[in-house]
């Protein structure tokens, strides 16, 4: 079986890979590119643990074929911190203890960052609905929502 050659940009790096048609973007990130920060919790788009950004939009990387990524720009959790400087959301998640087991955390951070880029002043309800596709079984979401709201408030204050 001949595989598909895909050239794409992942976390600002030009990347190419070979994939089979039935491989998802998540399969390639995890199994071929060693970007295991994106997690597979369900494989059906119901948990959000594999959330990445493709051309500025949130997607579940388990619901996108790897072959579709040709020419696209992809951001994953591995690209969120700048070197050793954490993104403000990452820092606030630590300060607010917004994670317990941490398996949902990469997907939630990627989703929350995309929200704040679109809406720097979200209401609690807006944060909750934006993140409704990111399941967390540990926290009851309370500290996650507070961390996102606090990041937004801080960023507005600094601007």
């Amino acid at each position: 079986m001949s595989r598909i050659h895909v050239t794409t940009t992942i976390n600002n790096d030009e990347t190419d890979y070979l994939c089979e048609t039935d491989e998802t973007l998540l399969d390639v990130l995890r199994d071929h590119l060693d970007l295991t920060g994106s997690k597979e919790g369900c494989g059906s788009g119901d948990c959000g643990a594999c959330t990445v950004v493709v051309d500025g939009r949130l997607v579940c990387s388990c619901l996108m074929l790897a072959a579709e990524a040709e020419g696209r720009t992809i951001e994953t959790i591995e690209g969120m911190a700048g070197g050793d400087a954490l993104h403000p959301l990452q820092q606030k998640f630590l300060e607010h203890a917004a994670l317990q087991c941490g398996i949902c955390t990469p997907g939630i951070l990627v989703a929350a960052k995309n929200l704040l880029e679109r809406n720097p002043n979200p209401s609690e309800e807006e944060v909750r609905y934006w993140l409704a596709g990111n399941l967390c079984r540990c926290t009851g979401y309370d500290k996650i929502i507070r961390a996102v709201m606090d990041t937004a408030a801080n960023t507005r204050g600094a601007a």
Partner: peptide, 9 residues
């Protein structure tokens, strides 16, 4: 239809 992530697609 689905989550924010699903909305993107």
């Amino acid at each position: 239809i689905g989550s924010t992530q699903i909305q993107g697609r």
